[in-house]
């Protein structure tokens, strides 16, 4: 009998053994996949919310301008010169009363006819002032706005700074929740996978004993359990992606501007969940198979 011909790893055999682990413990496996999916879905929805808030903030920042509304007797050219001299100002554009009205008509689109009832153009001329990005979310923006506001010929100013600050605060809060959810998801998945794999290890105690007695390597004994953890993560991740896409499609019907970061979802749901699945298996093996 010739048995010298060993080869290091029978991958298909080990994968098969991993699948057998799952089929023997089907209900526990799918129950724990369900819990993992719910956790990942929660995380996905928070990431969806965060990325969309960040995107909205960036879009507002890109268009960020200070509006300086002028008095009827203001000397626009002189004001443009003065504003250009203020530190932090990058570009100043004059918008006349007529141009402001045309803009408003464009913005109102099919409702523009409402403007026809006006006897005169109520809109003031204004300066649109683009500023240096470093000023946008800093205290210095208030000082800059104040410098423009006190110039002779400027009636009032508006920057949307408050709106940006409010969005910034919301984003910070949501990111805080993201981190919280991430931590919960991390521990929940690790825990549930390790418990499921532990149950499989206990159920396979005799098989493991025989494997060890006949001379199976540690890798050979442990690999099927890593396969189980891997598949746990893969299933949980894929189902969470499908559910998130379904929710996204439904939400987009109501909010067409909604953005879906595909790459991030693939990374988070697959890479993260597979990593946690394998991590859960590692934990179970470390606890039981010493």
């Amino acid at each position: 009998m010739k048995t010298e011909s060993y080869y290091p790893m029978a991958i298909n055999f080990l994968l098969n053994e991993g699948l057998k682990n799952i089929s023997r413990n089907k209900s526990a496996f799918f129950l724990s996949v369900g819990v993992s999916t719910a956790c990942l879905l929660l995380l996905s929805l928070f990431i969806l919310l965060t990325t969309n808030l960040l995107r909205a903030k960036n879009q507002i920042e890109e268009k960020f301008e200070i509006y300086a509304f002028l008095t009827p007797d203001a000397d626009a050219n002189a004001l443009i010169e003065k504003v250009n001299l203020i530190s932090g100002v990058r570009q100043v554009t004059y918008v006349s009363k007529e141009e402001a009205l045309i803009e408003l008509r464009t913005d109102l689109a099919e409702n523009a006819s409402i403007l026809d009832i006006l006897d005169r153009n109520p809109l003031p001329a204004s300066l649109r002032i683009k500023i240096d990005p470093s000023y946008k979310l800093s205290e210095r923006l208030g000082e800059l706005e104040e410098k423009i506001r006190i110039l002779k010929g400027v009636k009032e100013t508006w920057s949307g700074h408050d709106l940006l600050i409010r969005i910034q605060k919301i984003i910070r809060t949501v990111i805080g929740f993201d981190i919280g959810v991430l931590i919960i998801v991390f521990f929940a998945i690790i825990f549930i996978v390790s418990r499921t794999v532990e149950a499989t290890i206990v159920a396979k105690a005799r098989e493991i004993e025989i494997m060890k007695l006949v001379g199976a390597s540690n890798t050979m004994v442990r690999f099927p359990f890593y396969v189980e953890g891997f598949l746990h993560g893969l299933f949980g991740g894929v189902i969470a992606i499908i559910l998130t896409v379904v929710i996204y499609i439904f939400a987009q019907a109501h909010f067409p501007m909604l953005y879906f970061p595909w790459l991030m979802f693939l990374i988070v749901n697959l890479f993260f969940s597979i990593l946690l699945g394998i991590g859960g298996s590692y934990l179970a093996l470390s606890r039981i198979l010493k």
């Binding site: 060993y6 029978a10 006949v214 001379g215 199976a216 050979m220």
Partner: peptide, 26 residues
């Protein structure tokens, strides 16, 4: 005996040979 009850006689022996890394063809 320490046999695996959910595997046939053939599979019991095959299992041992697979876990120690014997080539499947043999």
């Amino acid at each position: 005996f320490k046999l695996l009850l959910d595997r046939t006689v053939y599979e019991n022996i095959e299992f041992t040979l697979r876990v120690i890394g014997i080539r499947p063809l043999l």
